[in-house]
């Protein structure tokens, strides 16, 4: 249970798709002019990630990893098909997106009306393929965790696009220097938001930290945090003594 919670918060805040690894930036920049459309696209991303990441996890575990074919018999145990993962993942994603589009159109026209136009766009959204590739490279262990990873990184992306869309709606009334208007200021705001999100790095202490460059940051952040905690403890005891 605890690992589920940890993965959940880690994927939303610390390894946020947009701010930490820049995934799905194209649609993030292109579709964030209005909050309503941003919500639609964000929801579609959560939906598709929740389906494709577990599916690709199954593919990876039972087909692609070195030794994954051993369920066919011991003579297949030596095969390593991992070089095929790009093509398998992207084919799965493209077909799933198509399938989801057809199913949703058939069974829930209202959902289709709100999500439908975004679904074809999503097949080539880097966040979706990125979710599957990170699932593979971070060696997520169980199907449940893969599902969790898909949903939570989708939520992280949703949060990011919602926030930037809201800011862009407001910034229209601000006096931005002319050459920065539109794209430029969006980049810079995203950067500033990313700096804000870096502060979540100290949120999860203990456990094994991710091996990327966030590690250093989060470690120093935790050190600082524990220091301040100690200080507050010391201060509190001093106060108590005075009383």
């Amino acid at each position: 249970m605890i690992e589920h919670l940890e993965l959940f918060f880690k994927s939303i805040f610390i390894d946020n798709m947009v701010f930490a690894v820049f995934l799905g930036m194209c649609s993030y920049l292109a579709v964030s002019k209005k909050v309503a459309t941003a919500v639609g696209l964000g929801a579609a991303v959560i939906f598709v990630l929740a389906i494709t990441v577990p599916l690709n996890w199954l593919l990876d575990t039972f087909l692609l990893q070195p030794g994954a074919l051993s369920w066919l018999g011991s003579e297949y145990a030596d095969y390593d098909l991992s070089f095929l993962s790009f093509i398998m993942f992207i084919a799965t994603i493209a077909t799933m997106v198509q399938l989801v589009e057809i199913v949703v159109e058939k069974f829930s026209p209202s959902l289709y009306n709100s999500l439908g136009i975004f679904l074809p766009l999503i097949a080539v959204n880097c966040a979706i393929l990125g979710g599957s590739l990170f699932m593979q490279s971070r060696e997520i262990e169980t199907l449940g965790l893969a599902f969790n990873y898909g949903i939570s990184s989708g939520i992280g992306w949703f949060l990011a696009i919602l926030a930037i869309a809201a800011i862009r709606e407001k910034i229209r009334y601000s006096n931005v220097p002319a050459p920065l208007r539109g794209l430029g200021i969006t980049f810079i705001i995203t950067g500033l938001m990313g700096i804000g999100f870096l502060s979540f790095g100290g949120m999860l202490t203990g456990g094994d930290e991710a091996e990327d460059e966030n590690t250093k940051q989060s470690k120093t952040a935790t050190l600082i945090e524990t220091d301040t905690e100690k200080e507050t403890v010391v201060n509190n005891t001093k106060l108590l003594e005075k009383k």
């Binding site: 820049f22 810079i188 500033l192």
Partner: peptide, 25 residues
Amino acid sequence: MPPMALIIVGLIIWVQRSRNKTLIE
């Protein structure tokens, strides 16, 4: 850190659009 890449691209856009006014949105 990752956010600085975004800010640098933002600055590149700023420089480029200051030099070529037709690109301003």
